[in-house]
Structures are given as C-alpha cells and as structure tokens.
Simulated scan of single mutants.
Amino acid sequence: MDYVLRQATPDDAENVVLMHTAAHEESYGHLLSPGFFAERRRSVPERVARRRPYLDAPQPRIIAEDANGEIVGLADAGPPRHEDAPCPLELYSIFVLARAQGTGLGTALLAAALGDAPAYLWVLEDNTKAQAFYHRQGFTFDGGRGHLPPEWESVPELRMVRGLPGQYT
C-alpha cells in the first residue's frame, strides 16, 4: 500500500490525537495499565486543544496518510528537551499503526523527520520491538536512562543515539 507523507497542520489535530491514542494502545498495551488507556481516551478533547498549536510549527510534524486519507503514522522531531542532550536534534516520537507496520513506513517517517542528521531519542526499556527498529536505523544505546512522568506510570526508558563522532553501530 502507498502512503502520503506530509507536514501536519493544526487542522489535523483531532485525527493525529486519535491515531496517537490508538498507536499507544497497540504499542504499549503490555506496558501500561488499562486505567492509563481509559484516561487517554477520556482526555482526547483536551489533548486535541493542546496539539493544535504544537502542529503549527516549522519543526517536522510528519504524518502518513493511507489511500483513504486516514492517518496511519506520525513522526516529530526538534530541539532537545533535555539539558544533557548528546546532540542538537531529538526524535520526540514515531508511531505507525499495526496495520501499516512492516511496509517501510516507519523508515520513511524517520527519514522525513530527521534526514541523516545526528539525533537521539528515548525508547521504553521494555519495548524491544521499537529498540530493534531503531537499531536497524543506526541508533545505539548511549547509557542514558530515565523514567516517564508519573501520569505515564513512571515507565523506565533508555536513550539511543546515532551519527555522533566516534559512535560505532
């Protein structure tokens, strides 16, 4: 199946949030509680309102649409959110719905959001599928560790980087 990649706009906010919510359930269903997902579904209207201005930005806010115009993937990147960032570009998130996985869409989204620039990201410690994907894209663990905020049940996460001088993949 073919997908169209484009920069998201504020008008995409509701569909982006709905897709993101579905992707969280598919990707993290084994890592977070049912109550977490119930709260995510309940908070869709508030999250849409917060997402609109976020999508009105020059940084990559890439969405992938299928032949029916439905959003099936997203990737976003920009300046580091952490003072100890190993490089000046962070991949904030990348998600592809299960029905579009294995098509090369994740690789295309990653390329659209980052190009070939050095970058870093955070991945959940127990999300081995995502870790394998990132490793295939040239990312390696650099020893950075953290936890998601309490509203995300403080799940542990690991930092991965690519393209730094002296880095071996």
Rank of each mutant, 00 (worst) to 15 (best):
V17T: 04
H20G: 10
T21P: 11
T21W: 02
A22K: 11
H24F: 14
H24C: 10
E26F: 06
S27P: 05
Y28N: 11
G29V: 14
G29Y: 09
H30M: 12
H30E: 15
L31K: 00
S33Q: 03
S33W: 12
G35Q: 13
F37Q: 06
F37I: 08
E39T: 12
R40W: 12
R41N: 09
R42C: 06
S43A: 15
S43M: 14
V44N: 07
V44W: 13
V44K: 14
P45Y: 00
P45Q: 09
E46R: 15
V48R: 03
V48A: 01
A49P: 13
R51P: 03
R52D: 04
R52L: 03
P53A: 11
P53R: 05
P53N: 08
Y54K: 04
L55R: 03
D56E: 11
D56K: 13
A57I: 08
P58Q: 14
P58L: 12
P60D: 09
I62M: 13
I62V: 12
I63D: 05
I63H: 09
I63R: 12
A64R: 03
A64L: 03
E65I: 01
E65W: 00
D66T: 05
A67G: 02
G69M: 02
G69H: 06
G69W: 10
E70V: 06
I71F: 00
I71R: 04
V72D: 02
L74P: 01
A77T: 04
A77P: 00
A77H: 05
G78K: 05
P79F: 09
P79I: 13
P80D: 02
H82S: 09
H82P: 08
H82C: 05
D84R: 09
P86R: 11
L89D: 00
L89T: 01
L89P: 03
E90A: 04
E90I: 00
E90K: 04
Y92W: 06
I94P: 07
V96M: 10
V96D: 02
L97M: 11
A98S: 15
